[in-house]
């Protein structure tokens, strides 16, 4: 087997049983890494899909483990990293992909929904960074946060956007704070992607059906940039959020799909 820069390295991708996380995990495995796949809800389709992904990665000749953890709970995050140490003894790449949010305008959020929003998408990610530090320090590893255009543009019923914006700022902070420890910290901001979450968007934002297909990003296109940020080739990039949206956010006007007659 060809030796690559990623061989013998270990990646944790939070929320990787499906969607973007799944594509990123797969891409890192193909590049040569062993993978810790994380999901939150035990006993459901996430667990099943996570198990499939594990099998697929093992089929590639890499090691893979599936770890259930709710990143909003610090204890759960601690156990997550303890298991990674037990299984792999190291961590090189921390990919913060897991997200969880209700789909409601901010002014309608109940208190418990607001707290859950912050606990998963802000606190949870920071818990992961903090717990990963001792491991990443040893490997001069990398943190990549997965953001979305909701961090900088309005989307209907998408309070998650405000958390993405907060995390992009956290990434800038940690990128500077962790220079001495040689840990690279950046983010990738995805555009419109047709994953399971898209099923939510299309119900809350009907206009999305009229955006031309070619403006939808493939999960692999985002995963490739994540891979790049884990590669020494990206060492000059620090604290940045790289937008991967096929130019969607560049455009003021965009053409609308014609209705079929």
């Amino acid at each position: 087997m060809k030796q690559t820069l990623f061989n013998d390295k270990v990646a944790l991708v939070t929320g990787s049983s499906r969607g973007l996380g799944n594509a990123i995990a797969r891409k890192l495995a193909l590049a040569g890494s062993d993978i810790a796949i994380n999901y939150r809800k035990a006993g459901g389709s996430s667990q099943e899909q996570g198990e499939h992904l594990c099998e697929e990665i093992r089929g590639m000749g890499r090691r893979a483990i599936l770890i259930q953890a709710d990143i909003s709970k610090k204890e759960s995050v601690k156990k997550l990293f303890q298991e990674i140490v037990r299984e792999f003894g190291r961590l090189d790449f921390l990919i913060l992909n897991a997200a969880r949010a209700p789909f409601k305008p901010i002014e309608r959020l109940l208190e418990r929904e607001l707290r859950q929003l912050v606990e998963t998408n802000y606190l949870g990610n920071i818990f992961c960074i903090q717990e990963a530090l001792p491991l990443l320090e040893k490997t001069q590893g990398t943190v990549v946060f997965i953001s979305s255009l909701g961090s900088r543009f309005y989307n209907p019923a998408y309070p998650l956007g405000s958390m993405k914006a907060a995390m992009e700022s956290v990434i800038r902070d940690c990128a500077e704070g962790l220079i001495e420890r040689n840990i690279s910290v950046n983010a990738v901001c995805g555009g419109l992607v047709k994953t399971d979450s898209f099923k939510v968007l299309r119900q809350y934002w009907e206009e999305i059906q009229y955006i031309p297909d070619e403006l939808f990003v493939e999960p692999d296109e985002i995963a490739d940039v994540v891979l790049f940020l884990c590669d020494p080739a990206s060492r000059g990039i620090r604290g940045q959020t790289i937008v991967v949206d096929r130019g969607l956010s560049n455009r003021l006007y965009r053409s609308v799909k014609r209705h079929e007659a």
Binding site: K41, G44, S45, E48, D196, S197, K199, V200, R202, Q203
Partner: peptide, 15 residues
Amino acid sequence: GAESLDFLDINYRLE
């Protein structure tokens, strides 16, 4: 074995 995203999918199909 459904999860929340599955509900949305099922609803979408019915809609």
